[in-house]
């Protein structure tokens, strides 16, 4: 079973709100020293899904990430957990893309890897929250996809996926090769072992540039964008709490209900 997992390095989504700073000129998030880079949590789940299959059936896991200044301590994490190979699409030309141009580059890299039965992605990245890269890769590669999986089992040329739905889940079966996006319902991810970490220190990632994967420069990174960011901003609210008043507690309660309906919270 050959598996590929796509991971993204993002600013820690759990960092306190106050530590996020936006540069209004470029509409981008400015990294602050106090906010570390991590692997997007859903991508960690994707790695976990692949590892579970490797545990059960064996196989090889190739991890691919895309960006610049990818911190080795961060992106090598899957290697310490049991992934076999790490490919980094690390070039300024790759960055600044949208879901489509990112998927295009990743798909080109996957084609170059060649052999694969399953591709795993997180259901969405913790920064852009776009949730599209997986589906786009599947479309470019012309393979079936299953979104938002909580359990993945590989059975003879097929993959059986418990797909999260609003009121429960669906068991869906698709033939391999296929692409699965993984959700947090998969459960806790494993802990890096000391042996794995030591072994991963010795492994160096493979770096591919656009030319290595035969990507058309106009289709990758910022050049390949279909989506334009008009504005990035922080919603003003939070710290200010509006205290709902009233004569009695009962009045306050009624006023609160009215207010919540008014602002469409309920």
């Amino acid at each position: 079973m050959n598996m590929i997992v796509c991971i993204k390095q993002v600013l820690d989504p759990e960092a306190p709100l106050s530590s996020f700073k936006i540069d209004p000129a470029t509409n981008t998030m400015v990294p602050v020293t106090s906010v570390p880079f991590v692997i997007s949590p859903f991508d960690e789940q994707a790695v976990e899904a692949a590892l579970k299959i490797k545990d059960a059936k064996g196989g090889k896991i190739t991890v691919i990430s895309l960006g610049v200044n990818l911190l080795r301590d961060v992106v090598k994490k899957p290697l310490s957990l049991g992934a076999d190979e790490l490919i980094l699409l690390e070039d300024p030309a790759f960055i600044g893309g949208d879901s489509w141009s990112t998927a295009y580059a990743l798909a080109a890299a996957i084609k170059k890897v060649g052999q694969f039965d399953l591709i795993f992605c997180g259901r969405q990245a913790a920064d852009s929250d776009s949730g599209q890269v997986g589906a786009c890769i599947a479309e470019i590669l012309g393979i079936p996809q299953v979104s938002v999986a909580k359990k993945v089992e590989a059975i003879d040329g097929k993959v059986k996926v418990d797909k999260v739905t609003t009121d429960g889940y669906e068991v869906v079966e698709v033939p391999t090769p296929a692409l699965i996006t993984v959700s947090n319902e998969l459960g806790e991810v494993r802990f890096a072992t000391f042996k794995g970490t030591m072994a991963s220190k010795k492994k160096e990632p493979i770096i591919w540039k656009p030319a290595d994967i035969g990507a058309e420069p106009a289709k990758i990174g910022a050049a390949g964008r279909r989506i334009k960011t008009r504005k990035l901003f922080q919603p003003v609210r939070d710290s200010k709490c509006e205290i709902i008043g009233g004569e009695t507690d009962e009045d306050k309660a009624a006023n609160l209900a009215k207010k919540l309906v008014e602002v469409k919270l309920i």
Partner: peptide, 19 residues
């Protein structure tokens, strides 16, 4: 974002009724 200062025992039933 919104807050009510008071006794929940009185607030919750009234709130539920109003909702």
């Amino acid at each position: 974002r919104f807050g009510v200062v008071g006794d929940w025992k009185k607030i919750i039933p009234a709130f539920e009724a109003k909702v």
